[in-house]
Design a protein around this nucleic acid. Structure first.
Length: 581
DNA sequence: GCCGTTTTCGGCCCGACTGTTTTCAGTCG
């Protein structure tokens, strides 16, 4: 297969292979620090730029936690889909052993025991053994343990994929509303991957402070939405919802809210690195405070900022806590000043009933103004969208109407269009029509399955059009159904930077496109980005905060984000490209 | 296996909860 048509393996898939190796190494009795090295490497890969690009740029061994040995395994996985080490391990342990390990309550020690002493290497074999009672009398396997496994097996079978961020946020809000009706609380919030704005989350972590913690954890375990209670103690309880989403609640005194929030926001890798740094300063960090090992004093932090301060570093925003290089930067006080929602001056991407939106043009303009924006653009679809789209005449009619409205709503409405990028990279409107618009978004909505080489050419040609200012949802990914079309990211980012074309971070809940690793790579290539809602109704305008979350994870500052700039700078950005300067 | 503002060798984060235990191993995050 020619190199340009070879399907690229996703970072998530590479990370998964590394975690498979890690699990099997532990099962095989390898030393602790050997297999945990694979775990750390997997976390790094998950957060890195597309790994094939990193390898091509010769940057693989620069990533934290990746040395010669694991680096070699990663290259093998990218090139062949597997690694020698993994294949060797699979000769000893069949792939179905991961089913057993996937049962909540069964860890590596137990899986190894079941495999070696009872030949159990799959879920079906485990179920049969339980049913036949052949595990009765095994030391340390009492009836309660077996009951927990049965529940774990049911959960394994019914388990869904990781939960998309917007869905998990809604559930967290629901749990918070319930908790607020219970025993008195001081402070309550969500932590974990949710707070770090990861695109998908594995579980929901809630943190809370209260004078009577045990009443709160008990109240939480009794929530009617709890399908099962996994744990219930004096300071924490864990429940499963129907569908398998787990919610963990931890309750401590209010004086350690900062420690608690820091601890449960993670990430795991970030916390490990933070604590390793602390140990070198004779400090032991946990959710209960920071213990000074020299004098036995405990530093408690009611606010999270205090934790980082006590460790001699700059405050690290949750979105940057990935375990990549943020601690190094925080120690040097060189973290970026991340974009905030209040920095937004506008939103370039929204639809009205003129195309496939559900609210009228007037209502969308009023709603954008109500959000406090100074400007925005209406970007209804071009006519290639069939019954959804506007032809050139309708577009002119819309523009005349917007001009007529003037500043009635107290906001500057830019006339735009989300114009289809056709398969050959030309646009769905001729240049003279595009030239009449204030700003133009170009998006791919068709022919997703063309070759990587062709798609790269298509996007580069769109960037080279002097009237295309923003590439909308650049990869086409949809969290529910589609990983995105294939193209050479670095080549397109270079073209966008060279031509003065912005790339969008689309906040629509199912899109979140660009995702943060790609947005970061685009920034490094010198690309300007936008954070847009791609709203199809008024309520969707709020989705722009999801785009902000990805921008923050990518380390973006206002100078990188077009719609934080004053209107005259935005118009100058458009004018520069049209003038070819 | 990885890594270095004490180190190219000798270290490598921290604690809650459960079940089956008479003091703790295993699991989880």
């Amino acid at each position: 297969m020619p190199p340009d048509t070879k399907p690229t393996i996703s970072n998530t898939d590479v990370a998964k292979k590394l975690l498979d190796i890690r699990m099997l190494m532990e099962l095989a009795g390898e030393p602790f620090y050997k297999y945990t090295a694979f775990e750390r490497a997997a976390a790094t890969v998950e957060n890195a730029s597309p790994i094939a690009d990193v390898i091509a740029a010769g940057e693989l061994l620069k990533l934290p936690g990746i040395g010669k040995s694991i680096g070699g395994a990663i290259e093998e996985i990218v090139n062949t889909g597997t690694a020698q080490a993994l294949e060797e391990l699979h000769k000893r342990f069949p792939p179905t052993i991961f089913e057993v390990l996937g049962v909540s309550g069964i860890g590596v020690k137990t899986a190894a025991l079941l495999f070696e002493n009872y030949g159990i290497a799959s879920l079906a074999e485990l179920e049969r053994a339980i049913e036949e009672g052949s595990l009765a009398g095994v030391p340390r396997l009492g009836p309660k343990t077996i009951e927990n496994w049965k529940r774990g097996i049911l959960a394994y079978k019914g388990r869904q994929r990781r939960t998309p961020l917007p869905e998990a946020l809604a559930i967290a809000q629901e749990a918070i509303s319930y908790l607020l009706l219970g025993p008195p609380l001081a402070r309550l919030g969500y932590a974990g991957s949710l707070r770090r704005q990861e695109i998908t989350v594995g579980d929901v972590d809630l943190v809370c402070t209260s004078g009577n913690a045990e009443h709160v954890t008990e109240y939480f375990a009794r929530w009617e939405r709890a399908e099962a209670v996994l744990a219930e103690g004096p300071t924490k309880s864990s429940i499963w919802l129907a569908g398998g989403l787990q919610i963990d609640l931890r309750v401590l005194p209010d004086r350690v809210y900062g420690n608690l929030l820091q601890h449960f926001t993670g990430s795991r890798e970030h916390n490990i690195q933070l604590r390793e740094h602390a140990v070198r300063r004779n400090l032991r960090v946990s959710e209960n405070g920071i213990l000074n090992l020299e004098n036995g004093e405990v530093i408690t932090c009611p606010e999270e900022e205090g934790v980082y301060e006590a460790l001699g570093m700059q405050y690290i925003p949750p979105e940057l806590r990935t375990g990549m290089d943020e601690i190094e930067l925080a120690l040097a006080r060189a973290l970026p000043k991340l974009i905030e929602e209040s920095d937004l001056r506008g939103d370039f991407h929204m639809h009205s009933t003129w195309s496939d939106g559900r609210n009228s043009l007037d209502d969308m303009i009023a709603a954008a103004a109500a959000r406090g924006y100074q400007y925005h653009s209406i970007s209804d679809h071009s006519w290639g969208r069939g019954r959804f789209g506007l032809d050139a005449d309708k577009l002119r009619e819309q523009r005349a109407y917007v001009r007529e409205l003037g500043d009635r709503y107290g906001i500057r409405t830019l006339c735009s269009s989300e114009v289809d990028i056709l398969p050959d990279g030309s646009m769905d409107f001729p240049d003279d029509v595009l030239a009449e618009l204030d700003i133009v978004i170009g998006s791919v909505h068709s022919s997703f399955s063309m070759s990587r080489e062709q798609m790269t050419k298509r996007l580069i040609r769109a960037c080279e059009n002097p009237y295309v200012n923003i590439i909308g949802h650049p990869t086409g990914r949809r969290s529910d159904s589609f990983p995105g079309y294939e193209f050479d990211y670095d080549a397109v980012f270079a073209a966008a930077a060279r031509t003065g074309t912005a790339l969008e971070i689309d906040g629509q809940a199912v899109r979140l496109d660009l995702s943060s690793p790609l947005a970061c790579r685009a920034k490094e290539a010198g690309v300007t980005l936008t954070c847009d809602s791609d709203a199809h109704e008024i309520a969707d305008l709020e989705d722009i905060v999801l785009a902000i979350g990805q921008a923050r994870r990518a380390g973006l500052e206002t100078r990188h984000i077009l719609n934080t700039w004053p209107l005259e700078d935005v118009l100058a950005f458009v004018a520069r490209k049209r003038a070819g300067t």
